[in-house]
């Protein structure tokens, strides 16, 4: 029932929500009344805009409203994508535990590509330098114990592109 209502709610406002996303995905204006400015741009009431944003926050379409710091500039210059081969039957339990570690920013199950890519659990680890990332990775190794059959760590060596996810773009 709840799912039905949620779907109806989304369908009923799909165009409006899409316009709101297009108007805000690059960011909010740094003015005293940012929502008012966006609402005027979209020719809607600011109350409607605030209500749609609240709805999208509550149903998970918006993860949060806030700032994304440039982690390189803040000194977190090392990032390691740690990848793990754990038994499929334990991945939910292990993934939840790894995801809860404070230094893990993203944690996902992804498909393996056997034989050369046996890893099914990904956890992104950030640090001020490689040593810090390696120390943190050791903690994941310890947590997984014998359930880890193989693992690797892929340090980023260069950002080739970073524009963020946008909708409404075409090749």
């Amino acid at each position: 029932m709840w799912v039905y209502i949620l779907k109806f709610e989304i369908d009923n406002h799909a165009d409006l929500d899409r316009n709101i996303i297009l108007a805000t995905q690059a960011g909010l204006p740094l003015v005293a009344e940012p929502y008012q400015q966006i609402a005027e741009q979209l020719n809607i009431d600011v109350e409607v805009l605030q209500q749609r944003l609240t709805t999208m926050l509550n149903d998970g379409r918006i993860r949060r409203i806030g700032a994304v710091p440039n982690h390189y500039k803040l000194g977190y210059t090392s990032n390691g994508m740690t990848v793990w081969d754990v038994p499929d039957e334990l991945i939910y339990e292990l993934g939840e535990r790894v995801g809860k570690m404070t230094f893990v920013s993203h944690c996902y199950q992804r498909p393996r590509f056997l034989p050369d890519w046996p890893y099914n659990l990904f956890a992104m680890v950030h640090g001020h330098n490689h040593e810090e990332v390696l120390e943190k990775t050791e903690k994941i190794t310890a947590l997984l114990g014998d359930n880890c059959r193989a693992h690797d760590i892929l340090f980023s060596t260069k950002i080739l592109k970073k524009t963020g996810i946008r909708i409404g773009v075409k090749s």
Binding site: L30, V31, A32, D59, I62, A67, P69, N70, K73
Partner: peptide
């Protein structure tokens, strides 16, 4: 105060301490 916060945010964005400021959409849920 409001004006100080906004001007500091402008500075932080300009100096690239912030890469984005606004709603972060979860593309999966669309």
């Amino acid at each position: 105060n409001e004006a100080d916060l906004i001007s500091r945010l402008e500075q932080l964005s300009e100096k690239k301490y912030l890469t984005r400021f606004g709603p972060l959409y979860n593309a999966d849920n669309f």
